[in-house]
Design a protein around this nucleic acid. Structure first.
Lengths: 129, 129
DNA sequence: TGTTGCCCTGACGTCCGCGTCAAGGCGTAC
DNA sequence: GTACGCCTTGACGCGGACGTCAGGGCAACA
């Protein structure tokens, strides 16, 4: 299949695919016209990238997963390098979530002090006002 | 005081102050040499901006707080517009924290499925591995 | 023959909060 | 005189993941 079809089937754009190729993440074969050609395996790689992107992974962080799939593993996270990225991401998320919860608490306090009766306190247990 | 002193007292840089001025957030008087001149009130405004920036507020979101202080209120969050920003930020934070926790849980599950015995499950109660 | 539709490369634009460099002015100290 | 230190404006750079435009090619269909 060509780039337009792959983009559509993965819910992304041709620009994105060309960008991935420029980063060496998803290289394409070429047909006699110089047009990029992809197969079902490429679609799987692309879906893996998109899933991780949706999780907030940077593009470079998806590389181990892609290479793992290309190495023949059935899942992108079947390789040690992928698991290492998972663990790093877990630590990053924990740190970030902690900071955001601290900020949330601060703002909650200030809202309460400013006399907003709709504001509940307590942090993560009461999300809705 | 001049720009260098204000920057140092607020723990920031002259570049940052000129940028704030270019955004209309912290305009400066000028002395006969054309040099920017600030007073203690400007330092308070600047500290307010920096505090909110540290909280993750965008520069534009700090504007109501600055204007509130400039209007003579003792606190930047004493005005309705500031409180509105607080509430919007709370909602944004809750949404973001929720998403991040969902992602964290997903990654935790995948790590566990991939056979990482060090990984604990359960989301926000067990942050450390 | 012309129009449509897909593809190509190259390059500049976007957002945000500045960092960094260039080129120059003014005042003080040595 | 000249070196230093602070100030000025203007403008380009950065990072990340693309969006968008310019200019052109090739094939199928009417």
């Amino acid at each position: 299949m060509r780039i337009g079809e792959l983009a559509e089937r993965a819910g992304t754009t041709t620009r994105t695919l060309r960008y991935y190729e420029s980063r060496g993440l998803l290289p394409a074969r070429r047909d006699p016209h110089g047009h990029r050609t992809y197969d079902e395996a490429d679609l799987r790689l692309l879906r893996q990238i998109r899933t991780l992107q949706d999780f907030g992974f940077e593009l470079e962080e998806t590389r181990p997963f892609v290479e793992c799939l290309r190495a023949g593993h059935p899942e992108g996270d079947a390789c040690p390098a992928s698991l290492a990225v998972y663990r790093r991401k877990l630590d990053e998320l924990d740190a970030l979530i902690g900071e955001l919860q601290a900020v949330r608490a601060q703002i909650g306090v200030r809202l309460a002090l400013a006399g907003d009766p709709l504001c509940e306190m307590g942090g993560e247990r009461s999300w809705k006002r």
